[in-house]
Design a protein around this nucleic acid. Structure first.
Length: 646
RNA sequence: GCUGGCGUAGCUCAACGGUAGAGCAGCUGAUUUGUAAUCAGCAGGUUGGGGGUUCAAGUCCCUUCGCCAGCUCCA
């Protein structure tokens, strides 16, 4: 083969000898292959523009817009288009960064006057013009110093700052029309590839995510390869609004907030309280059968104790303090202290370990006002908290059994989840050795189970590394629920010991863990997960008894009481309304069973169930209805929750 | 906490700086109805709170509380 030629392998398995320096798109075209649908390519595994030349033997793969990588390329390009539009409309705007993100893209700008929603419309319109012009994305490479000079001349100080931190001698820039941006690429061939775009929202964002830095104006947008996909996404956003737990909380009369009470404090209404009661009952049973012991600690503990635990030094800004007869007390932001004291209340033998102390502990944390969010982020919440004290050699098994616990519980609720390991943060206590040991225990437990996880460097708690389990809300935002945290420092600070088989005192290790996390947050995610249509075992109202006319009320009252006696959470709709009206009401309230009683049912001594999905069952007795609901509850919970739990 | 937006009846929303309205929900009455809304009437408000500008403020200004999106932080 001549040195001017290279061998190119295509995805169809075909190999062709082509001149060196041919572009990806030319390589496809000259060999009779189509670049249809390609937004970029992967050349020898590396993401590459279609216009890039190939200098050596290569394998070419397609990046199409219907893949995640392809959408990212498209959206990243859309962010450049938006930046170009902004620069054309607001020449004084300074550009910062503009990546593709999960459902779209954003770009940060430094502007004198914050953008308005009218600006957004103008920018969107300008983008449409740029897209219609089908401007080519041209890649340029230049020495880093030259790029610094270039951006400095344009007054783009943020780009200069980014460039000055790059180590590379040469950097790449992309230009479409007059707009030039520092960028690694790749990009779509020309702006016309963006077939559908929409700017979604405006927000402030600190430069480089640091609150000490100036706040920039961020514009969020999204882009798709076709109009229909954009329409589907906008429809998803609309549907997500209907699932919003704050809206459903009000519509289903579960809970409320009050500005008279204060921000971040949940007020549970009767139906919300039933839900919470069910969750807590479920939790207690699950913990007891797994060898946990139920404990209850106080809410106020002396500040001295918080100093001993390290919370005063490391968590003070999140705590509330009060004074009682000249003595300073802290309101607990975590439940661990009382559990430490319970451990210390007597001499512990290695035979007592692992000791698993469980508490549905209500804590208060001073969360910054801007972060509060319905039930998902509050200032007072109850954790299904436990502290496990064990011998070092038991740690691995304990962590594995907690992971099993989490998996089983999430399975019952039908949640999918993501696991993350967080390592040592800058502000922390404990020795390097402790941290390594604890982190290793978490990693090996997940690896032994073959569970996929990501690593968040420096995201651990100040007292130890952790495994976090994240659930998604209706908008796919992730919320940390379960967490498993190793802690080698509290046992030390409280001088916890046990007598080993050798008769000597040893230091136990501690695991701090929650399964649902905060009941409030879990409930919020749960409401969105089910869109308010709870399965029978969770439904605050499992059945509504309703009559066709007032004539059947006497019998209906009997049925209602009978169901309640059998442990069904039943209500009676005894209003003088038409049946359709009552059905609609129950349907809107997402009640799983509507039990209709007319003259025929009275005569037969039964009810006619209508299900939430609109289907109807044959006439049956109240006992049969109760048995049906009970079976449904037991099936959903692997036999854990039946009737009569409240 | 920060940037921006927003607080009108229980809910969803109207009202040019000039007498705060509607639908739903609620209450009362009529109707007695067979699987997603029967009809009529009544009542409902210190326009989040406080201060100011103005002859006059839901509307303009300041302040405070709260909510929303995002950032930072986090269960």
């Amino acid at each position: 083969m001549s040195s001017d030629n290279i061998e190119v392998t295509f995805e169809d398995g075909g190999k062709e000898v082509l001149p060196k320096g041919i572009s990806v798109v030319e390589a496809l075209r000259t060999t009779g292959r189509s670049a249809n649908g390609w937004v970029a390519s992967r050349v020898n595994g590396k993401l590459t523009d279609l216009s890039r030349t190939i200098e050596e033997d290569a394998r070419i793969e397609a990046i199409t817009a219907d893949t995640e990588a392809g959408l990212d390329v498209l959206r990243h390009s859309a962010s450049h288009i938006m930046a170009q539009a902004v620069k054309e409309l607001f020449p004084d705007a300074k550009i910062a960064i503009g990546p593709a993100i999960e459902n779209g893209f954003y770009y940060d700008f430094d502007v004198e006057r914050p953008f308005t929603h009218e600006d957004l419309e103008r920018i969107e319109q300008k983008m449409a013009e740029i897209i219609a012009a089908r401007l080519q994305f041209k890649r340029r490479e230049m020495p880093r110093d030259e790029a610094v000079r270039l951006f400095r001349e344009q007054g783009e100080q943020y780009k200069v700052e980014l460039l000055e931190e790059l180590e590379d001698a040469s950097v790449s820039l992309y230009q479409q029309g007059d707009f030039l941006d520092l960028c690694r690429g790749p990009h779509i061939p020309h702006t016309g590839y963006v077939k559908a775009h929409k700017l979604i929202s405006l927000a402030g964002a600190y430069w480089r995510g640091d609150e000490r830095n100036p706040m920039l104006q961020r514009i969020y947008g999204t882009a798709f390869p076709d109009r229909a996909a954009l329409k589907r996404y906008l429809h998803f956003l609309e549907e997500a609004q209907k699932r919003d737990h704050r809206r459903l909380g009000r519509e289903l009369d579960l809970f409320s907030f009050s500005d008279e009470v204060g921000a971040g404090m949940v007020i549970y209404h009767p139906k919300g309280a039933v839900l919470r009661h069910i969750l807590e009952t479920f939790e207690k049973r699950e913990h007891l059968r797994r060898g946990y012991q139920l404990v209850i600690g106080p809410t106020l503990l002396k500040t001295e104790l918080w100093k001993r635990s390290g919370h005063f030094d490391h968590y003070r800004e999140n705590m509330y303090f009060t004074e009682i007869e000249d003595q300073s007390y802290g309101i607990k932001p975590m439940n661990c202290l009382a559990h430490m004291l319970i451990y210390k209340s007597k001499i512990r033998s290695y035979r007592d370990l692992p000791l698993r102390l469980f508490e549905l502990g209500t804590v208060h944390r001073h969360e910054k006002s801007g972060v509060l969010h319905g039930l998902l982020r509050v200032r007072q919440f109850t954790q299904d908290d436990a502290h496990i004290l064990c011998m070092p050699q038991q740690l691995h098994a304990e962590i594995q059994s907690i992971i099993d616990f989490v998996i089983e519980v999430m399975g019952i609720f039908g949640f999918s989840y993501e696991m993350e390991i967080s390592t040592r943060p800058a502000k922390s206590i404990g020795t390097d050795e402790d941290w390594e040991r604890a982190t290793g225990a978490l990693v090996s437990a997940l690896q032994d189970k073959g569970i996929a996880y990501s690593v968040c460097e420096g995201e651990g708690a100040f007292y130890g590394p952790k495994i976090d389990v994240k659930l998604k809300d209706a908008l796919d935002r992730r919320w940390q629920c379960a967490t498993i945290q190793c802690d080698f420092t509290l046992p030390e600070r409280f001088d916890l010991t046990y007598i080993g088989a050798d008769g000597e005192r040893h230091r136990p290790v501690m695991v701090h863990r929650v399964i649902l996390g905060a009941i409030e947050r879990f409930l919020g995610v749960l409401i969105e997960h089910y869109a308010g249509a709870f399965p029978s075992w969770l439904a605050p109202v499992q059945a509504v008894v309703m009559t066709v006319t007032d004539g059947q009320l006497e019998f209906a009252r009997k049925v209602h009481q009978q169901l309640k006696d059998l442990g069904v959470r039943a209500e009676l709709d005894d209003r003088s309304e038409k049946l359709g009206y009552k059905i609609r009401e129950a349907q809107v309230q997402k009640v799983p069973y509507m039990l209709v009683i007319g003259d025929r049912e009275v005569a037969a001594g039964g009810v006619r169930p209508r299900l939430r999905d609109g289907s109807q069952l044959d006439m049956m007795s109240a006992e049969q209805v109760a048995a049906l609901i009970e079976k449904e509850c037991l099936d959903a919970t692997k036999g854990r929750i039946g009737l009569g739990i409240i």
